[in-house]
């Protein structure tokens, strides 16, 4: 069976904590008009009014509000610790005789059972990259912006 630990970042400077990210939820999907490369492209403008939030995307306007989510999201990032671990082990091995290599392999297996929760023995783990506690929710269907002005966007 595979066991994947979910854990906090290990780096020392993570004492400031995992950052809070945000989710903007809206109906439908985003598509690039011309099917061009979307990376880096502009999506839309978010405005706040006294009552809520307004998002303008392309020729659509969306009305929504900020909400605290009942159930937070965690943003998980897959990490691999075993690759590094193996790499180190291989480096060590190359300096040793063949018998030593075999011994070391055997001992490694038993260690991984005894110290199941030793972080180094998880081949893959998920790091909590960010937490989402709030979102900006655009519940209603986007409204088209009616205009007779020629498209300049």
């Amino acid at each position: 069976m595979v066991q994947i630990l979910i854990r906090m970042p290990t780096s020392e400077d993570s004492k400031s904590g995992v950052p809070d990210w945000a989710v903007v939820e809206l109906q439908g999907d985003l598509e690039s008009k011309s099917g061009q490369e979307m990376h880096g492209s502009f999506v839309g403008d978010l405005h706040y009014t006294k009552k809520g939030a307004i998002l303008i995307i392309g020729h659509h306007i969306l009305f929504g509000k900020t909400v605290d989510v009942d159930k937070p999201f965690i943003v998980l990032r897959k990490k691999n610790s075993l690759t590094e671990h193996h790499h180190e082990a291989n480096m060590l091995r190359s300096q040793k005789s063949l018998e030593h290599t075999q011994e070391e392999e055997a001992s490694e297996v038993s260690v991984s059972i005894e110290n199941l929760y030793d972080k180094h023995n998880y081949s893959t783990y998920y790091e909590v990259h960010a937490i989402v506690r709030k979102k900006i929710l655009f519940k209603t269907r986007p409204k088209p912006i009616v205009t007779n002005v020629p498209k300049k966007l």
Partner: peptide, 30 residues
């Protein structure tokens, strides 16, 4: 009627972050 800060959203250069997953958890699990 609008607050003075406008936020323009851009897709990140590496925005299809396939290494990222969203998991909904309870406050307790968090």
């Amino acid at each position: 009627d609008l607050k003075p800060v406008v936020q323009s959203f851009y897709l990140a250069q590496d925005f299809t972050r396939e290494d990222l997953k969203l998991m909904e958890v309870t406050p307790d699990i968090l």
